[in-house]
């Protein structure tokens, strides 16, 4: 796969060889970092983000929002194999959060619909705040 190139940097996407290599070698600590990043990009509704960066080689794994759930599922498969069940639950929570935030945004624009309960649920379960 030919990477996207810009300013001497190479950007690889979902399912690229680099992504698969990263996935095959990912540690528990790196999964924690990735899940924290995912929570931020899901909450901020970021369209694409640089998931992993290797500054020395000027290489990045850049992911589009349409692949977030696929990536979370890939990571979950690894967590199941490694019996890291706490992370599996975190991943399921993130997937649920992604759906609920989309639902909240849509319903919030419909006249006459009270989204207060959904908002409260999201705040309580995912430790978030709505500004």
């Amino acid at each position: 796969m030919i990477p996207y190139q810009l300013d001497d940097w190479e950007y690889y996407g979902y399912n690229s060889k680099l992504y698969k290599k990263w996935l095959s070698r990912v540690s528990r600590n790196k999964i924690h970092i990735a899940l924290n990043d995912f929570k931020a990009v899901i909450v901020m509704d970021v369209v694409s983000f640089d998931m992993v960066t290797w500054p020395k080689d000027r290489v990045m794994l850049t992911m589009h929002s349409s692949t977030y759930v696929d990536i979370l599922n890939d990571i979950k498969d690894i967590c199941i194999q490694q019996e890291w069940y706490e992370e599996c639950q975190e991943i399921e929570d993130l997937k649920e959060l992604k759906v609920r935030l989309v639902v909240y945004d849509i319903l919030n624009e419909v006249d006459g619909i009270d989204v207060g309960d959904i908002q409260k649920d999201i705040i309580d379960k995912h430790n978030l705040d709505f500004k």
Binding site: V103, I106, V110, G112, I113
Partner: peptide
């Protein structure tokens, strides 16, 4: 009317 779909989505949620 949007409320029908909204109610369906809210309950599925």
């Amino acid at each position: 009317p949007g409320e029908y779909l909204a109610n369906l989505m809210m309950t599925l949620d």
